[in-house]
Structure formats: C-alpha cells, structure tokens
Design a binder for these strands. Sequence first.
DNA 1: GTGAAAGCGCTAACAA
DNA 2: TTGTTAGCGCTTTCAC
Lengths: 337, 337
Amino acid sequence: MRRIRLEDVARHAGVSMKTVSNVVHDYPHVSPRTREKVQRALDELGYRPNASGRRLATGRSGMLALAFSDVSMPYFSELARLVSNEASRRGYRLLLEQTGGTLAGERAIVSTMEAGLVDGVIFQHSVMSSTEIAQHREDVPLVLLGEGHAPVSVDHVMVDNVAATATATRHLIALGRRRIGFAGHEEESPSATSGDRLMGYQQALEEAGIRVDMSLLLPSKSVSAHEAAFSIGRALDRGLRFDALVCRDDLAAIGALRALQERGIDVPGTVAVVGWDDISMASFTHPSLTTIAPDTEAIANIALDMLEERIGGYDGLGRHRIAGFSLVVRESAPASS
Amino acid sequence: MRRIRLEDVARHAGVSMKTVSNVVHDYPHVSPRTREKVQRALDELGYRPNASGRRLATGRSGMLALAFSDVSMPYFSELARLVSNEASRRGYRLLLEQTGGTLAGERAIVSTMEAGLVDGVIFQHSVMSSTEIAQHREDVPLVLLGEGHAPVSVDHVMVDNVAATATATRHLIALGRRRIGFAGHEEESPSATSGDRLMGYQQALEEAGIRVDMSLLLPSKSVSAHEAAFSIGRALDRGLRFDALVCRDDLAAIGALRALQERGIDVPGTVAVVGWDDISMASFTHPSLTTIAPDTEAIANIALDMLEERIGGYDGLGRHRIAGFSLVVRESAPASS
DNA sequence: GTGAAAGCGCTAACAA
DNA sequence: TTGTTAGCGCTTTCAC
C-alpha cells in the first residue's frame, strides 16, 4: 500500500493541492464547505504529511541538535530533559549528539552536520576551541554552552563558574575549615570548566588569606565518580589530610564521599564536601550534598531564545548571556549556624 | 552567500549532476580524470550536500527515534547513551522523544510522528496499550522495549523481569531474610514493569514457603527516589518492620537507603536492600547497591538489529527477543558467604 | 563512463 | 476563496 500524498487527497476531494494544504495548515480563508469536504478526504485516506517534502520546500527542518559529551552523565541528561521539553513546546524536535568528550568527536559533530538537517545547534563543547567551532559553523545557527571564551560571532550562555565556586568555597571557610582541597579536575589539560572552578576556589582562599596549597589539589584521570574516588582515596592513604573538599562536580563529590566513608572519615564532621551541578542524586547521597545549583532552566530557555532569534534571521554579533546559580546547603557542608 | 548545490558544482566542473553525485558517493565507475576535476570543484566551492533533498529522493531520513518517559532518569539516560552510540556507528542519527510517562504523551509520540521523519522508532512505552501503538504505527518500523504484552505484529525486546526479580529475592532468602518487603511500585495502576517485578518477588517467596504479607508491599505515589523514600519512611515510622527490601528499581532503592539511614537502621545489618537496573550510581551509594543488571548493551543491539531488518524490508511477524540479566552483589545485600 | 530529465512530496508566488 | 505551477536539491533510470 502506497503512501498517501497531498495530491491523492486533492484528487479524492476534487480540489487543488493548495486547498488541501490550506486545510492541513488551518489557514483562515477556506470556506466551511470546502474545508469539510477536504477534511473528510483527509480522514478517509489517512493522510500523513511527509516531513522531507515540507522541509525541502520550506528550508526548515523543525529540528534542533543538542550536542555534548555523554548523555549518561546526570548533568547532561537533566539538561537534555529540559531542552527537549522546551524545544517541543516551541515546536521543535531534538536530535541528540554525543561527542564522547574527545576532540575527534566534537570535530565530527561540527563538520559532519549536513546542511538542512537541523535548524540550529546547541553545543556544549569541552575540548575544541570555540574559534574553530565558529569557523565551521557559519551556515547553521549555533549557541554555545559552558565555559571557555566564545568568539564574538557566536552566541553563548554560561554560568559564572568562578563566582559560583568562590561562593561554595567561602561557605566552607565560614564553617571554619582551613585545609580546603579541590578534587575531580582532569589530571592533564583541565577543561575550561575545571579551570574556572579552580580559579574561583583559589580566589576565595586568597580573599580569606589562606595560602593555596598545591598538595591539596587532587585531580583525577577522568571526570567521573570512579576516578575521583580513586585519586582521593589514594591521597588519603598516603596520609594527606584536609578538612574540606571543593569538588569539580557532583560526581566527583559522590566519589569523594565514597572514598571518605570507606576510610571511616566522618562527613561533614571531619571533612566537609561541596559539589557542583545539583544533580537530582545530590539530595539522596549519604550525607546529602551541599552543592552549586546552576539555573539550568534559564540556560535551556536562553539558549533556545537565542537560537530562535538566529533562525528567525537575526544576524548581529554573538551575544554572551549569564545564567544564575545558587548554593544549596545540605548535610555534607551544613549551614554554619 | 547562497548555498552551493550539486548543480553549481556540476556547472563549475563542466560535467553533469549525475557525475558529481557519483563522485560524492564514491561510485566505482568514474574515470580518474573526471573524478579529480569534480573533486577540485567540490573543494573550491565548499559543497555540502543537503540532507532534505537526498531524503526526499531516497525516502530515507537516516534518523531513528528513541522514545521513553524521561531522559533524566538514569536508566533511560544510560540506555540512550548506548543506543545513540550504536546508532551512530550504524550511520543513523538519534531523535529523542520524551513522553513524560503519560498516556497523552505516549499518544502524542505515536500519532504526531510525521511520515518520513525517521526511518524507525524504538519505543519504551509504559501506559499505552501495545495494541494501540501497533495500530497507529503500521507505516514506520517499530521496536518496542520493556515489559507488557507486545502484539504479534510488532518486534519487541525485553528482559525477563519475573525471573530476574525472583533471582534477587532468592538472594535475600539465602541471606536468611524472611520478612522481605517490596517497595517503589506505583500506588495505583502499576506499570507492566512493576507488575512483573512484583510477580517475580512473590514467586520466589512462595517457592521458599514464605507467605506474601500484603503489609510489606510499599508502593509510592510515583516512581522516584523521593517518593520511595517518603513512603518507606512513613511505613517505618508507623512501626512496620522488615529485614529486607526488594526495590522496583535503583532509584527506589536509593530512596530506601535514605529512609533507613535517616532512622538509624543499619543496611545491610538490619535491612538488606536490592535494586533493579544497575545504574552507574549503584556502585557509589553508601552502602553500594546489590542490584539486577539488565544487559542493556544487548537490548540496544537487538533493538537496532531488528529495526534495521525492518527498514531493510523484512515484513514478517513481530519477533520477541529476550535480553539477559545478572545479579550484581554489592554491599547492600552481600554474598551469604 | 557520462548526460538528460523525470520525479520524490510539499510550499508559495501568482493567477484566476 | 481556490487553482496553477514552478521550484526546493538530490537521486536514478535510461539513453548515449
């Protein structure tokens, strides 16, 4: 059984394709009689519009791509949920692209993307230089997410990671902690995200007159709970001591909790821990995590707003927007009371 | 600057569109000279094929849809990662669709999907009847994931939830536990998944001659760590006692750990807990979770295999495939030693 | 080995 | 208000 086309419906109803198209699209100027007649034909034949045809004719695909390293990471999956919901509210479908966090993966996304596949791209890059991204991407509307310097030509939304991490660090200082470590950043070539967070950490320490002790920097082989637990555990076993830990993200914090608990070290009694992201699991760890909650809803909305403006033809310079954050105080680093 | 089309390249190279197309697609029968000439034109003009055009001509979109309730749930996001990777390995892009776990949401996915948008759909439904899905979907290749009875016409891949949950329950029995509860299923109208798991739980108890005590069934308002923690906590506060808990999924188990810890109840000493899914967080809870690990890689692969066969024209009856599982023993319900 | 031309299904400008 | 028609960019017979 062949697919039903617009033309079939037109013939069946005894009208032109244009009229059928009008009915399908709920155009105002159709006489009730015609409309009804066409509607009946539509129903009888079970017409389903063909997306490719429409796309070719309009030049719009109705799809957006969301690209980042790995959906299975809670921060990204929670972001994907928001972006997907908001995109479908705005009439777009969402294409998911994973880069694996590698340069090759990010390059593949950027260069492979065929013209006309998607109307716009939201891309959280981590290794590729944003200038390189901008070059390849002059043809498709693009919004960059996350840290790093965006080139002037490209829209960008981020959270002030430096300020946020400083806030978290100050919270620990207010708790009376002095030997405050930082954990979970990449061992070699830290990402822009890690860089900013380290900077905020350092800033808050210096502000309080605490010297930054390099031995309290505990990077891990990769950004994951597992590797963080491993490297923090190893440091503890070597005899390193600290009374608080600022973690690169909640996964690292969860790894930290694990490493500390395995060694019978009390959290937050002996070591207070703060995370970053406020993934939903953060309320359910034991103890629950004090963490930075970026305003992901704002991120999703701003990104989509800017993308829609670009799709709509806006062609100005790249905009640079900041989304908010807040410190969510839970058990792993309670209020100083 | 206008987009470069195939025709532009053809004119520039002084050949026909067909020849350019041949070069683009690496067709064998092109003379080296022509090939080189065309390639040069391609490079000079910076040609990028237009996806919509190709799609319309070939009838293939190169896209698959993956639909389920909510990407932010760890089981789904981890599944999405696998499916996305495997799909792109096979040359497909992945469209993400969230149903919100509601009937309306599932219906929207199924009926809204325009023809030609995707070449196939992988759908983990939870409320919609599979017969209804099958009806709406005669035009697009479809593979159903998860529990529930699939209609004969539709391909389906699932894990034997009854057997798996029975295995988990037997593990608790072998540990000497006798008052074994079940937690985290939906309060009203349990999903097929919850139903199967409850059945496996019951089966194992009966096998061991343990009477099923209805008061040990602890449903929650919705499937989430939060609601599970709430309803388990409330039961404990009412004085209910048990020595083990089979949880509907890892999120429920994480909620259970939380509720138990808040009340100072030792896990696994006083209460042993098992989960379902083996989400990556399961290794990092405190104590880490003993859980059922479905073979999600197999699920992803089998689903994609079947989908590709359908796309390739296979038109037989629906196949019904079973993916494996294993019990991963961790701290929350250790080996009986 | 290469070219010409007829679609794929839909939209939109222009007529009527 | 409705119809006609020329594309959108690519693929693919079928000649040459």
